[in-house]
């Protein structure tokens, strides 16, 4: 794992009434084409939206609901069930630190404390410049490389210590 991961999330900002940008319409159509009904595309469409807007404000959830022809409440119910859908803005780099047993055995708690101290933020908080959001997460399926973290949706960073995570933060553009 070398090189800086590209940010997936756009800087979070206010989002007004929305429609799918024309550049995304082929992706939306393709997602819908994978299933025999529109409802099954809810998760793929929420992902497409989150990658575009960085988070999922109510206007965007309503857009997804219109697209799959469901009541808004159905899509709100789905979006609030899954932990990876951001219902509040997150920073440009969303640092998700695995805290489950295997990583914890290898020092995840200290890793989290180090990041928290360095960035001056706690779990679920974002730095004032909007650059970093820090979050404790449950098992990422990288247990043999603990402690580990995921930046946005990129491949996991594994076998981390304080020095390695400092280097990682410095590499981010």
């Amino acid at each position: 794992m070398s090189g800086a991961p590209a940010p997936h999330t756009a800087p979070a900002g206010p989002v007004g009434p929305v429609a799918w940008p024309s550049a995304l319409q082929p992706k939306v159509a393709e997602a819908l084409s994978h299933y025999p009904n529109r409802r099954s595309a809810v998760l793929p469409l929420l992902w497409i939206a989150q990658r575009e807007w960085g988070w999922l404000p109510p206007e965007v959830l309503r857009l997804v609901a219109r697209t799959v022809e469901l009541p808004d409440a159905e899509v709100f119910g789905v979006a609030t069930f899954y932990t990876m859908f951001n219902l509040k803005p997150v920073g440009k780099y969303h640092l998700q630190v695995c805290m489950t047993l295997s990583c914890s055995l290898m020092g995840a708690d200290r890793l989290f404390q180090h990041l928290s101290g360095r960035l001056g933020i706690g779990h679920g908080e974002t730095t004032p410049d909007g650059r970093f959001t820090l979050r404790r997460v449950e098992c990422l399926a990288a247990c043999g490389g603990g402690p580990c973290l995921q930046v946005n949706e990129e491949k996991f960073h594994e076998n981390l210590d304080e020095a390695a995570v400092d280097r990682l933060l410095e590499r981010l553009p």
């Binding site: 914890s104 055995l105 290898m106 020092g107 708690d109 200290r110 890793l111 603990g146 402690p147 076998n159 981390l160 210590d161 304080e162």
Partner: peptide, 10 residues
């Protein structure tokens, strides 16, 4: 040890 652990460098 877990609570006080040094980082896991293989």
């Amino acid at each position: 040890r877990r609570r006080d652990s040094r980082m896991g460098v293989p």
